[in-house]
Computed example of a mutant assay.
Amino acid sequence: MSKPALLFLSHRIPFPPNKGDKIRSFNMLKVLSQHFDIYLGSFVDDPYDWQFADKLEEYCQQVFLLNQNKLTCKVKGLSAFLMGKSISEQYYQSTKMQKWVDKTIQQQGISQAFIYSSVMAMFTSEHLDKLHQVVDFVDVDSDKWRQYAENKKGLAKWVYAREHRKLQRFENNVAAQSAHSLFVSDPEAALFKQQIGPEVHGRIQGMLNGVDTAFFDPDSNFEPLENEQVDVVFTGAMDYWANVDAVSWFVKFVWPLVRQRHPKAQFYVVGGNPTSDIKALNGNNGIVVTGRVKDVRPYIAQSLVTVAPLQIARGIQNKVLEALSMAKPVIATHMAIEGIDARSENIKITDDPEEFCEQVCQYLEAPQDAYENRLWIMENLKWTATLKGLPLLFRNS
């Protein structure tokens, strides 16, 4: 028996689920595929991900993927200054994607669409009169640019402030034209409501991330690391500006204090595509930069503590959820823990470098089991529970 057709647009291929946005988009795709015939259109910005393209066929009726050259997209982004649009919009603009969307909607008689990341809504803008559209903003992207602007000076400050204004206007238009707008948490949804008129508020809601608790299980079957001393670990995509900034802050303000007390301590930075600045840290002062790894779990499992020292953030940090699910102590800034209601003796929250150091040193000196962290994840953030309401936002699901 055929299922209703659903257009699913994602700014990044939703497989493999190895970084924050792809973890969420993949799990949403998996849930929606149980109720709809999925027509997926997505960009591939990392050549590594092409090998997994056929994995999507299990969940989709049709898959359309476009290679995204980052340098070309940055050049396209510059045209935003001439067109009065946000850089983000122009970065993702694609004639090929637009033609595929137009053709697919017409040929398949599609009347419903799921948009993952607000920028992808540009491709359905000419079809809104016949589309029931649900958009997952995930977090308030425009607010990140406001935060960036606060930490810059001169031209960079002006550019980031402009992007905040332009992208906010675009986000508001998308939400006003959509049946439902989702955000990764209730606080994130509340923040968005502050920038848009009250007539739209009833169509805005939070929908939490989950965790694959069977995968991120300290007792699951994964290959342990050999001859590696992982005292402190940070995990995340290391070409993402907020992660780079977090590691840089930790290395500058916290780690030297830790090493004064524990000269042999090791800090592992685990994540793909590290920038040149992050690569340069490798081998210095007990810092190990791994680059992309086959499995992040051994690094979390063998660490004494996971750190999340984010200085700029929106939404929920999957790196924190995964560490909690692995029963690890977590030390996080207030930014990194936002939207996560878990509290225990082994979740420390501080923005002060000296206090951050003190907490790290306590775990180095007296390692702690944090199984209560995993129990909280099991009780509150399994994907089957957090996404159970997603199909109900559509017709005939």
Results as ranks from 00 to 15, higher is better:
residue 1 M to L: 11
residue 4 P to F: 05
residue 6 L to C: 05
residue 8 F to N: 03
residue 10 S to A: 15
residue 26 F to S: 06
residue 27 N to M: 10
residue 30 K to R: 14
residue 33 S to I: 08
residue 40 L to R: 05
residue 40 L to D: 03
residue 42 S to C: 15
residue 49 D to W: 14
residue 66 L to W: 14
residue 67 N to A: 12
residue 67 N to C: 00
residue 70 K to S: 07
residue 85 K to D: 07
residue 88 S to E: 15
residue 91 Y to T: 07
residue 102 D to G: 07
residue 112 Q to E: 13
residue 115 I to V: 12
residue 115 I to Y: 00
residue 118 S to M: 05
residue 126 E to W: 08
residue 126 E to D: 15
residue 128 L to V: 06
residue 130 K to S: 13
residue 135 V to H: 04
residue 139 D to N: 13
residue 142 S to R: 03
residue 145 W to K: 08
residue 154 G to Q: 09
residue 166 K to M: 12
residue 170 F to A: 12
residue 184 V to H: 02
residue 189 A to N: 04
residue 193 K to C: 15
residue 194 Q to H: 09
residue 205 Q to K: 10
residue 205 Q to L: 07
residue 208 L to E: 11
residue 210 G to A: 05
residue 216 F to I: 13
residue 243 N to Y: 06
residue 244 V to R: 04
residue 247 V to Q: 01
residue 248 S to I: 00
residue 259 R to K: 15
residue 269 V to S: 01
residue 271 G to K: 01
residue 271 G to D: 02
residue 274 P to Q: 05
residue 274 P to S: 08
residue 280 A to I: 01
residue 286 G to L: 08
residue 295 D to S: 09
residue 299 Y to F: 15
residue 304 L to S: 10
residue 309 P to S: 07
residue 314 R to A: 13
residue 319 K to E: 06
residue 325 S to M: 05
residue 327 A to C: 09
residue 333 T to G: 10
residue 350 T to D: 08
residue 366 A to F: 05
residue 380 N to E: 02
residue 383 W to R: 13
residue 395 R to F: 05
